[in-house]
Design a protein around this nucleic acid. Structure first.
Lengths: 154, 154
DNA sequence: CTACATGCAAAGGGTTTGCACGACA
DNA sequence: TGTCGTGCAAACCCTTTGCATGTAG
């Protein structure tokens, strides 16, 4: 469930480089927040990260955790499960299908693919639990958003 | 972007049957909320659904929409994109990987698969936008939760 | 030393709940 | 007619923001 000490150390160093190069300060808080996510591979939510970091920095505040997480996301050092800052959305399509999701405007469009429906599930997954549903999610940028972005900016 | 009138009608009838059989009342509001999701295949969020239904039932309240959506979810008539009621979670794994997610406790575990990494993207997806990332999400129930559930209940 | 980051507290926005009235079966 | 559903409003989160203080570079 944990990355090796070496791996963690390596990632932390990479973090320092990227953050510094981005002209952002490498603070104690930021380092420990990043370390917290890297050390535990369980995909924690904000509160779990906050609790974890508090064991080492008891005064760290929740809003610092939030601000740091969005910064790490911007720099590509971490990712989110699903789209960030997104609300629950509903789907009444009962046919097996898959999604293309625009990371900019959030639009989700269905597509159908026998290959995607019939993916072989690796044996290790069966050691995790029982499988009920398999879905492919393709992230990208929709044509509409691409157009908007390619306009001459101010 | 819309289902055909026939398809919508068929789904609405199915909805009525399932709801009735579950011992839940088929009200005007519930019918229109369901129709709203079925009519638009764009995976709306709660507010979008509320706005849409208000055009036909101006007095419908937001909390009725919420309550109805969770009920439809319980009955399996609709699904959510990603897990319902879930907060943003973070991932510092930069290797290409895929997720097994327990629909009961929400735990997310990584797995690796060359086949999943190399899925052929259907041509129609390229008409939707540019592709940046493809990920497979397997939903199921983890062994831990399966154990809890198989205990004799009260 | 200076600009940026932090912690605090208060505001903001989405979601849930309690309660009295209204409507399906 | 009885029971369940609805609308309203208040409560309840989680998340964001403004500001004075602290600190990395």
């Amino acid at each position: 469930m944990q990355n090796s000490t070496d791996e963690v150390q390596q990632k932390v160093e990479y973090f320092s480089t990227v953050v510094r190069d981005a002209g952002v300060k490498v603070t104690h808080q930021r380092l420990e927040i990043f370390r917290e996510i890297v050390t535990h591979s369980g995909h924690p939510d904000v509160e779990t990260i906050h609790q974890g970091v508090r064991q080492r920095i008891p005064t760290v505040s929740l809003d610092t955790v939030y601000r740091t997480l969005w910064m790490l996301l911007d720099l590509g050092l971490i990712a989110t499960l699903g789209s960030p800052r997104e609300r629950t959305r509903f789907d009444a399509n009962t046919r097996p299908h898959h999604h293309f999701i625009c990371k900019r405007c959030g639009i989700a469009r269905d597509f159908y693919s026998v290959e995607c429906d019939q993916i072989t599930i690796p044996p290790e997954v069966h050691t995790m639990g029982s499988v009920e549903k398999t879905q492919v999610e393709i992230q990208g940028v929709c044509h509409q958003c691409n157009k908007v972005n390619s306009l001459p900016s101010k």
